[in-house]
């Protein structure tokens, strides 16, 4: 019996490692350890073993059983691994390019706009939107720009014929004309008329000037304007905000200076210059970047805010201009051509 057990193990050791399929394995398993298997048969012969040999023989049988089980386990594991491997193809070549499309991209103007909005959001400004087709009241009258002002001239502003009708853009007075907004300040007026101070808004959006298209001018372009109205808003607050915004956007080494200027709806008014030689293609000390000022009391009077109580500041910048500075783009028309080789540079 001892020999039989040894022979059984030897047979299993030679047979099991070469089994190639699961049915073969199941058959072999039955032959060795199944209810009618060889080991089972041998175990049943224990009764005929002399009593004094039984403990040694029992031990031997157990050892054989353990050994067979281990061989079977190994074989099963080997077959399962082979089955899984059969589900896969050959090994991949990781250096082949993915045939899937490249990632999509956001337009650089969107990226700059969103970055500015996010910077302003941190200090409490929320984004407001308004119609691009506007009326003379919201675009000019309410902004202290009298009918005789050159900015309103049809040479500079796009107007629609008197018959035009835009059903979801409300007119203040029926006889005023529709036009394409020349700045997003109209959104500020709409916000002021709709709400109550304090107000802290940013209005990014598309604006229109009747202008020759060239490397720095476009028939439409994008602006981002901010407005803050509260009690006791001062010139120093305005400077602090723009320092924060421009340094956040362009880096802390950026220097900002105010120059007195003139705008109809702010008093005092300033143009803002940047010193940012670390940016590409900035080759002079001071570069004009935006306009700003303290909201003119006449604008408050016009929207019915008490100008002895409320004060505020407003600022506005061209998104194209900022994007051109940040990325070193020298022609505004690239933004509107949308050549893929351009769009993919800014992701």
């Amino acid at each position: 019996m001892q020999d039989q057990l040894a022979e059984l193990v030897a047979r299993a050791e030679s047979e099991l490692p070469v089994l190639a399929s699961r049915p073969d394995f199941e058959a072999a398993k039955a032959r060795y350890v199944g209810p009618k298997g060889d080991l089972t048969v041998l175990m049943k012969q224990m009764g005929s073993v002399p009593k004094e040999e039984r403990p040694a023989m029992g031990k031997l049988i157990n050892e054989t059983k353990t050994r067979l089980q281990s061989l079977l386990d190994d074989t099963l594991a080997r077959l399962e691994a082979a089955e899984l491997a059969a589900q896969l193809g050959p090994a991949v070549d990781p250096t082949l390019p993915s045939p899937d499309p490249l990632p999509g991209t956001r337009h650089p103007l969107t990226q700059v706009r969103e970055e500015l909005c996010s910077i302003l959001r941190k200090v409490g400004f929320n984004v407001v939107e308004g119609p691009e087709v506007e009326t003379e009241y919201y675009c000019f009258d309410a902004l202290n720009t009298p009918p005789t002002h050159p900015a309103r001239d049809p040479q500079d502003t796009f107007y629609f014929p008197a018959t035009a009708s835009f059903t979801n853009v409300d007119k203040k007075v029926p006889e005023e004309k529709y036009l394409l907004r020349t700045h997003t300040s109209s959104v500020q007026i709409r916000t002021m008329l709709k709400g109550e101070p304090p107000i802290r808004i940013v209005s990014p959006g598309r604006v229109y000037r009747r202008d020759t298209v060239d490397a720095t001018h476009s028939a439409n372009f994008h602006q981002l304007e901010g407005l803050y109205i509260d009690r006791n808003v001062t010139v120093a607050d305005l400077k602090a905000l723009l320092d924060y915004v421009l340094k956040s956007l362009l880096g802390s080494e950026t220097k900002v200076r105010f120059r007195p200027h003139y705008f109809g709806y702010t008093e005092p008014s300033f143009e803002v210059d940047l010193s940012a030689r670390h940016l590409p293609k900035v080759n002079k000390e001071w570069v004009e970047i935006m306009g700003c000022g303290m909201v003119d009391p006449a604008v408050f009077d016009d929207v019915g805010y008490d100008s002895s109580v409320w004060s505020g500041y407003a600022f506005g910048m061209g998104i194209e201009r900022i994007a051109m500075m940040i990325y070193g783009i020298d022609d505004i028309r690239y933004f509107y051509q949308n050549d893929l080789r351009f769009l993919r540079q800014f992701c």
Binding site: D100, P103, G104, T105, R106, H107, L180, Y336, L340
Partner: peptide, 9 residues
């Protein structure tokens, strides 16, 4: 995988 573009109004 689309690229955002901006065109004239």
């Amino acid at each position: 995988s689309l690229n955002e573009s901006v065109s004239y109004t």
